[in-house]
Design a protein around this nucleic acid. Structure first.
Lengths: 249, 249
DNA sequence: AGAATAGTGTCTTTAAGACAATATGGC
DNA sequence: GCCATATTGTCTTAAAGACACTATTCT
């Protein structure tokens, strides 16, 4: 059949003229608690890969989702009850082997959420979900290729931590610089120089003083807030690993 | 129906249980010629968006493509006859508006190819294709959301040029440092300091001398080759824009 | 006063920018 | 020798690391 106008073409067009692979969105939802980077996993209640732990994810809702980001936000909301944190697309993986049902594609997103705000959404929660420290999660024999996906997300997070202000999105509204530095250190897996860290954050204008203080135990600490619109601020240099320490291994 | 084993589940599983969006791979194929960054566009011979210029792209071949990267390589080969350049996934865009046929998703890749090696593949070439300088391409009213896609690819390329050795993948086997610097300058849109550029490349061990020289006209220049395995080397600092120049605007 | 945590002073180091000076080969 | 292009010397600058020192509050 030969069409002579776009209208005519679209009138005759049927979805499913082309065989289309399965498409899903998967989420690596990160938070920090107990001094460790944690990831939220769900235990699958259905085949395939029933009973295995997996990254939360699912299909696009063609009727309700405006775009992929919406799908990711919806998944996040379903699993955590949280609505507005930082979401970033990591990578899209597609091949014939990753799912026993055949050719399938997933777009992987990661989310960074403030642990204090958070509570697992129990409503209509068929599947178990739980937080795992990253290194435990990676030893869990996850469903599908989710170990690889989780590694991709962790790598992206730690690499961006070296040159952006992204970890600030894990913080509550107000926070002390020591708290922020601790978050950086947890993600990076090594310590940072206090003076250098504070200078970097303040001189770049990434954080600003609120005037308020937080008394925890000893000397009260100044409370700061994030001073920029988005979390994609890039520093002109990478953070280094401490110059003496022979790296962990 | 309730299944009790993965085998049983898979035996009854049918594709198309879920409505799945259209999925394509689109390519921003870059090269450098005549002192400008160029992109390869094709003129669509079919509906929708017939006759408009577009990024080359198409559906996954579920029977032959191993994974998405293979699909991208295949598209590149079909359009250019070239087989092994640098390919990188930029982003995956999916929403309801971008294609008149409904919800659709595209994974955008970019390729960097050595213009000297290249010739447009005329074999079985139904669609016209042509190279355009980026700024011309962006004024062309491209099909679908391809202007947005092209912008994403260009942004990724220039941002990675600021802190990686990626542009080296645009070079032939052997090249002079002046040639490489020129490529950087074209992509970035501003000049770079000669000494600083050479120091950066050589001290990081990104390039190595071949011992050979190239006599163009005046003093012969040393020929270098790329010294690393992959093109993802990251420098510890960003290139700056020249400190005096008040930027272009 | 002593402990603990917050915050600063300041010297060193790394790698980039600026710019002038030198080197080489064609004509 | 003159010109153009390649290549190097070396001073300055930006921003990070190291590390010691001061400040504030609690007990």
């Amino acid at each position: 059949m030969h069409y002579t106008s776009e209208q005519e073409y679209l009138a005759h067009y049927q979805k499913r003229d082309y065989d289309s692979p399965l498409f899903t969105v998967d989420m690596a939802i990160f938070s920090i608690s107990k001094g460790q980077l944690q990831v939220l996993l769900i235990q699958r209640s259905n085949f395939p890969e029933k009973d295995k732990w997996a990254l939360p994810g699912g299909f696009v809702d063609l009727n309700h989702d405006q775009d992929l980001m919406t799908t990711a936000h919806r998944k996040l909301l379903e699993k955590t009850g949280i609505h507005t944190p930082y979401l970033e697309q990591v990578e899209t993986i597609g091949n014939r082997q990753r799912d026993p049902r055949g050719w399938s594609i997933t777009s992987l997103y990661f989310a960074l959420i403030d642990f204090q705000k958070f509570q697992i959404e129990e409503t209509a929660q068929i599947e178990h979900s739980a937080w795992f420290p990253i290194h435990e999660a990676l030893q869990l024999e996850l469903a599908f290729d989710h170990q690889k996906l989780l590694n991709l997300a962790v790598d992206r997070l730690s690499s961006k931590t070296r040159y952006t202000a992204l970890p600030a999105s894990l913080m509550p509204e107000r926070f002390t610089l020591t708290e922020l530095q601790t978050i950086y250190e947890i993600i990076l897996g090594h310590s940072l120089e206090k003076k250098a860290f504070r200078r970097r954050m303040q001189e770049a204008g990434v954080v600003e003083e609120t005037g308020q203080h937080k008394i925890v135990g000893k000397r009260p600490a100044q409370l700061f807030r994030y001073a920029l619109d988005d979390f994609n601020f890039t520093f002109p240099r990478m953070l280094e690993t401490p110059r003496n320490s022979n790296e962990d291994e």
